[in-house]
Amino acid sequence: MHGISVISEASRETEINEAGLSDEAESNVSEDVVSNANAGGMKPVHAGVEERNEVSTVAEATPLPLDEPTDEPLDASDRLPAADLEVEQSMLPLARQNVTFEQRVGYVVAVVVLGGTIAVSATILFAVPSLWRFAVIPGWLALAGFMTFSSHFWPQIKHRHYRWRSSDAGMEIHRGVLWKHRIAIPVLRVQHVDVSQGPVQRLFELGSLTIHTAGTRNASVIIEGLGYENALQLRDELLAQKETLDASE
């Protein structure tokens, strides 16, 4: 099996963001580290975007739980029991630059929508010869507020509520801000894995990992916003893992 070294943007960011949390990822994360991370780690850190180029150099140190020669597969009983569906801080977040990417895309959409709405409604309203026509301005402001929220803040919030983990038990994803969702795909159920990258994603060195299963609802599980290199590595590891498991027994 490949040495598991899915340590590129995502986990590096974890280091920066969350007080070196991923260094401890292999030993069971002690509670105080989690609380540290909770306390200080959640603020957006902008350093990550500038240091994007050094990605490959970081990719050696901390092995993931996968590398440990454990007898038992890592599973729920090894973890701290969670009382609710908030994300587990011991899991990996998406690439930091994904937030920037989503924000930039959001800004463009916001400008187009806002500009378009204002232009159209203004043209119509110039025909209205009453002061009432200015009543639309609060509407514009509300729209602007909403667009600001959805383009600037929402990606950050979303990022905070997204975690993934690849272990012997398979792939696990926790996501969702209001509607919370967890998905677990055992390695042996993975049919094939795709990595894709859109043109704008390429600028940010982002990629999407799609895991296909034979299931119905979760026939394809997409992790959008991983670092591209990271996604490629993860794909190789998943397939290698599957191959080893298939060969055994």
Binding site: P73, S77, A83, D84, A169, R182, A184, R189
Partner: peptide, 16 residues
């Protein structure tokens, strides 16, 4: 919810 999370883990383990 607590029970569900616990069962989720166990289902995952049993299926794997």
């Amino acid at each position: 919810q607590e029970f569900a999370i616990q069962q989720f883990g166990e289902f995952q383990r049993d299926a794997a």
